[in-house]
C-alpha cells in the first residue's frame, strides 16, 4: 500500500455532502452555468479553479442560495444537501445559510466590535441560551479561526481595526460561529498578503476536520496546497472534477491541461 492509494481510499470513504445535478444558472439571458454535475464530500476541501468569468464563483453562490439576492438570476437543476433539495419551495434560505456558511473575497467585518461580529450569527439564529453560552461560542469560534490569541484582549474593539489577514480570519470565525456543516469560501485570500494567506491556508486545512469546505481560488498553487479534490470550470462548464493530485499531474481533458500549464487563463 503506497500513500497515494491510502489517500484515495480515505477520500472515497467520505460521504457525499452536496450533490449537484444538471445545474443551469442564468443571468437574465446569459447562460452562466451549464449542466454542472458535482458531488462535494464531507470533511474535505474542494477547490473550484478556472479562468476569470468561468462561473466558479457563481456556482459557489448557488450552493447557499446567495444568488437569491440578485433579481435576474435563475437556477435550474437540483442541488441536494444531505439528500434534500435546497431549491425546494419549502426551504427557507435563512435556515440553509446557517448550515452552509460563506466567507467572501474581501474581508467584510461589520462595523461592530470583534465580539459582536462573531456573536452576530449565534444571536440571530438563537444558538446561545445565555451570555455565558455566547461567550463560549465566541471564544470557541475565534480559537477555531486561529485568531483568539491575537484578539482576546480587545474583544470589544471594532473589527474594522484589525489587519487584513486578521479581518479575514475574523470573518471565518464569524462563519464558524453558527456551526455550519459546509463552509463556502470565495477567493478568501485574494485581498491578503502572502503571510496572511499562509495563515488562512493553514486554517482551512484545520477546518477540514469538522466541515466540508469549498474554496474558489484563482491560484492553482493554493488549490494544490489546501484541497483534496479539485473542479476545473471553463466558460460555464465543469470540465473536469477529481482528486487534486490527479487533476494537477494527469488531467484527462486538454483544456485542463492548457490551463494548468498556463496556456489559457
Amino acid at each position: 500500500m503506497n500513500d497515494m492509494r491510502l489517500t484515495e481510499r480515505k477520500v472515497d470513504s467520505k460521504e457525499i455532502k452536496i450533490e449537484a445535478r444538471d445545474v443551469q444558472v442564468f443571468y437574465g439571458d446569459t447562460h452562466a452555468i451549464k449542466d454542472v454535475n458535482v458531488d462535494i464530500l464531507d470533511k474535505t476541501v474542494t477547490a473550484f479553479i478556472g479562468p476569470s468569468g468561468c462561473g466558479k464563483s457563481t456556482f459557489l453562490r448557488t450552493l447557499n442560495r446567495m444568488n437569491d439576492t440578485i433579481d435576474i438570476c435563475r437556477v435550474e437543476g437540483a442541488i441536494n444537501l444531505d439528500g434534500e433539495d435546497i431549491y425546494d419551495k419549502r426551504v427557507d434560505p435563512v435556515q440553509l445559510r446557517a448550515k452552509v456558511g460563506m466567507v467572501f473575497q474581501k474581508p467584510n467585518p461589520f462595523p461592530k466590535s470583534i465580539y459582536d461580529n462573531v456573536a452576530y450569527g449565534p444571536r440571530i439564529h438563537g444558538l446561545a441560551q445565555s451570555k455565558a453560552d455566547l461567550d463560549e461560542i465566541v471564544e470557541r469560534s475565534l480559537r477555531g479561526a486561529a485568531i483568539w490569541n491575537e484578539v482576546k484582549d480587545r474583544l470589544h474593539a471594532p473589527g474594522t481595526g484589525l489587519s487584513g489577514g486578521q479581518q479575514q480570519r475574523l470573518c471565518i470565525a464569524r462563519a464558524v460561529a453558527t456551526s455550519p456543516e459546509v463552509l463556502l469560501m470565495d477567493e478568501p485570500c485574494s485581498a491578503l498578503d502572502p503571510i496572511a494567506t499562509g495563515q488562512v491556508e493553514d486554517l482551512i486545512d484545520e477546518l477540514r476536520e469538522k466541515f466540508s469546505v469549498v474554496i474558489v481560488t484563482h491560484s492553482m498553487q493554493q488549490a494544490a496546497r489546501v484541497s483534496q479534490r479539485t473542479a476545473f470550470f471553463h466558460l460555464g462548464n465543469l470540465v473536469e472534477y477529481g482528486e487534486t493530485g490527479q487533476i494537477f499531474t494527469n488531467p484527462t481533458d486538454p483544456r485542463t491541461e492548457s490551463y494548468i500549464t498556463g496556456r489559457i487563463g
Partner: peptide
C-alpha cells in the same frame, strides 16, 4: 459586502438592515 456577509450567515433582510446596515 456588508449585506453579503450578513446574508451569508443566514440573516434575514430585516435582521441585516437593523443590525448591520442601519448601524
Amino acid at each position: 459586502t456588508m449585506r453579503d456577509g450578513s446574508y451569508g450567515l443566514g440573516a434575514t433582510r430585516s435582521e441585516t438592515i437593523r443590525q448591520v446596515i442601519l448601524p
